[in-house]
Structure formats: C-alpha cells, structure tokens
C-alpha cells in the first residue's frame, strides 16, 4: 500500500472513533434504554416532567445568560478602547487582560474566594452572585479576544465614510462599528455561553451547592443512574448544537451584505 497524505489523518480518525463517536453512541443507547437494556423513551419523558431537572436546566440557562451578558458588557468597551487606542504597545495592554488565563485556574478561584469572603463575610449569602462573578472572571478573556480581533481588523475607512456622510461619533458607532463587530460578539458569546452552561467547578469552589447541568449529570452518574444521566447529557448536547448552528449562521451574514 502506498503512503499518501490521507494516511496522516489515521491517528486522529482513530482518536475520533474511540473517544468521540463510540462514547456518543453509548450515550445515545443508554439514554434510550432502561436498566434491563430494553429500548424506551421513559428517560426522555422523565427529563421533561421532572421539576428537578427542568429547574436545573432553567437555573443553568439563567446563570449562563447573565454571565455572558456581564462578560459582554465588560468586554466590549475594553475591546473597543483597545482596538481604537493610539497607544503603540496595544498588544501589551491586551496581554494584561489576557494574563489571568496563564495562572492556574484553581489558584485564581481560590484567590477570588478569599476576596469575596473578605467582602461578603460568608460566601453562602450570595451563591448566585458569586457564581456569576466567578464565571465572568474566568471567561472574560474569551469574550475580549474575539471582539478585539474583529474591531482591530475592521477597515477604518468604514468609520471615516460614515462620519464623512454626516454621522456623529455616536451614530458612527451605532450604525457602522457595532453592526460590523457582530461576528466578534457572536463568537465571544459562543466562547462564554457554552462553557458557562456546563461548568460546575466554579460553583463547587465558591460553595454554591445549587445544581447546574454539569453537576446534575455528575450526580446521576454518582448514583449509578447511567440512563437518566445520559439523557441529560444528550439534551444538553442538543442545546449546544442548536446554539452553535444559530451563531454560525449569523456570523456569515455581514459578508452577505444583508441587514442583521
């Protein structure tokens, strides 16, 4: 057999098969079967009738949405002022915002925990707030970077053209800069929202005992309920797929030239 470039993909194909496709198949099989191995839709029905799982889904969604919103509100002005600043060493300034990513995540959260304890007295008073703060702190760089990149490579003549045609500074931002930066915002949201939906380590470390999707799956598996846990994983996967498809579509739109 002659060696061709295709064969270079073999290790990855094997990896994909063993660690992605196979587990996925197992999850699907488990999700739609009962403990005796008979196919059933009961797990599916249970998920959408159990107030406990639905409540957790809702809590996770709200937490992720608020975290994303907080990140966006902090990141956009930062990215904007960085991208349009006249400072020569912009990359150094950007680095300052990215730097926390280099520090071990456990260390970072432990430090945050101490700080919050100092401010609030007891972390248990504000579990939701603490989770939002912790996750925003953790994910902020993932929001700044894509928005910064998008704004930075934006042709300045678009803004000049808008101003030339009579737009004031604020109108230029509203009608040109903001719409043209949407692709960056969308990928920023995807980078923050998806991990925020599933990440439960932050909650864990900040003593928030409320379950979110990630911890819920963990609890099912810990109780040997493989079938119920698999169904929750599958629903979560479906939600993520849906969101990725949506954000992927809107990312292409500015190139197509239609109004967003």
């Amino acid at each position: 057999m002659r060696f061709s470039r295709k064969h270079l993909a073999l290790p990855y194909a094997l990896f994909l098969l063993l660690l992605v496709v196979l587990p996925l198949v197992v999850i699907v099989v488990y999700a739609f079967s009962d403990s005796s191995g008979q196919p059933t839709a009961e797990n599916f029905i249970r998920f959408f009738t159990d107030p406990n799982t639905l409540g957790t889904l809702f809590y996770s969604l709200v937490l992720a949405l608020i975290t994303t919103l907080v990140c966006l509100l902090i990141a956009y002005p930062v990215a904007y002022s960085l991208a349009f600043s006249r400072i020569k060493r912009r990359s150094v300034l950007l680095l300052l915002f990215i730097l926390p990513m280099w520090i071990n995540f456990t260390l970072r959260l432990t430090a945050l925990k101490e700080l919050l304890t100092l401010l609030e007295g007891n972390l248990a008073y504000h579990p939701f707030l603490n989770s939002v703060i912790g996750m925003s702190y953790d994910f902020l760089p993932f929001m700044i970077l894509p928005i910064y990149n998008q704004l930075e490579r934006l042709d300045r003549s678009f803004m000049e053209a808008a101003s030339d045609l009579g737009a004031s500074g604020f109108q230029v931002f509203l009608k040109v800069t903001l719409p043209l930066s949407i692709p960056g915002v969308v990928s920023g949201i995807a980078m923050v929202f998806l991990p925020a939906m599933t990440n439960y380590v932050v909650l864990d470390m900040l003593y928030n005992s409320t379950y979110i999707m990630g911890s819920l799956i963990g609890s099912y598996f810990a109780a040997y309920d493989w079938h119920g846990g698999s169904m929750i994983s599958l629903v979560l996967l479906a939600l993520i797929c849906l969101f990725t498809l949506l954000s992927g579509n809107s990312e292409e739109k500015p190139e197509g030239g239609r109004r967003l």
């Binding site: 042709d155 678009f158 000049e160 053209a161 101003s163 030339d164 030239g257 239609r258 109004r259």
Partner: peptide, 22 residues
C-alpha cells in the same frame, strides 16, 4: 470642524461601502 459638519464628501480609495447594508 469634524467631517460630519463639512459639506464635503469623499470617494474612498477602496470604496468603503458598508458591507452590512444593501
């Protein structure tokens, strides 16, 4: 005077047509 207050309009080198508008 800022550009938006001048009765002057520019045709840009690489046109600078807004890609998000028709």
């Amino acid at each position: 005077l800022p550009p938006n207050k001048r009765p002057i309009n520019t045709v840009f080198q690489r046109y600078a047509l807004f890609p998000h508008m028709n």
